[in-house]
């Protein structure tokens, strides 16, 4: 079979895999994105006792392979099967998709926490003092001063992290989740046609490129007040 033919006959599976990869990445990044700013706040302003567990968690996640973490959760949960059944959690851990999402969330939360910590610590202290001086409450300061600034600083680094997460999601194929990589291996084991790997590479690159393009558009929007004014027509 030539490369075109193999895609013609297997495109539904590859599309299915692509949707799975997107689902893993987007769900993982969003849940982690909801948790990490709060951990980052604790990490940059909390007491030492509150900071220590977060530090250990981040260090552990960053110091171990994601594949090992995936095996620890997916296969490791089997060791506690009676206990998990009693808690009604066994059905959750039996599904490889859930385990993959759980690991990606734990992983991305650690990385995003570090990125957001950098963003929060980069906020100009004078602006926070000014906000306090005009009588903003702590929540208002967070909402109007700290987070808008922190996200602007952290935005490019967050994009790197989400691309890393997308690449890591290929590991889910090892625990039988049929994402792009899983489908590709399945098709290869059936046809022994090498070109399916090149198609997979192409799909991954296309996702990354589209994502970088979109992310950059949002970055411009976040920074629209400090963009150069010389081509005013382009900025609207």
């Amino acid at each position: 079979m030539n490369p075109i033919e193999i895609m013609v006959s297997y495109w539904p599976r590859m599309l299915d895999g692509t949707l799975m990869t997107l689902k893993l990445t987007i769900l993982g990044a969003l849940i982690a994105g909801a948790i990490s700013p709060w951990l980052a706040l604790v990490r940059s302003h909390g007491s030492l006792i509150a900071q220590t567990p977060i530090r250990i968690y981040v260090s552990f996640v960053r110091g171990t392979p994601i594949l090992a973490q995936l095996f620890l959760v997916f296969y490791g949960s089997g060791q506690f099967r009676p206990e998990l059944m009693e808690l009604g959690l066994w059905n959750f851990f039996r599904d490889p998709f859930n385990c993959a999402i759980l690991v990606f969330v734990l992983n991305s939360t650690a990385y995003q926490t570090e990125i957001m910590r950098g963003g929060i610590q980069g906020v100009n202290l004078g602006e926070i003092e000014a906000a306090k001086a005009i009588g903003m409450t702590r929540m208002t300061i967070l909402r109007r001063v700290i987070f808008p600034h922190a996200y602007r600083i952290a935005w490019p680094a967050l994009s790197n992290e989400i691309i890393l997460l997308m690449k890591a999601s290929a590991l889910a194929s090892v625990v039988t989740v049929f994402d792009i990589m899983g489908r590709t291996r399945q098709i290869f084991s059936k046809t022994f046609d090498f070109s399916i790997y090149l198609w997979a590479a192409l799909i991954y690159l296309a996702i990354t490129s589209l994502f970088v393009f979109g992310w950059h558009r949002i970055e411009r929007r976040l920074n629209r007040h400090i963009l150069p004014r010389n081509n005013a027509n382009a900025v609207s």
Partner: peptide, 11 residues
């Protein structure tokens, strides 16, 4: 840099 490491390994 855009490809998953595991894909490179299999390729």
């Amino acid at each position: 840099r855009g490809l998953p490491e595991i894909l490179t390994l299999f390729v």
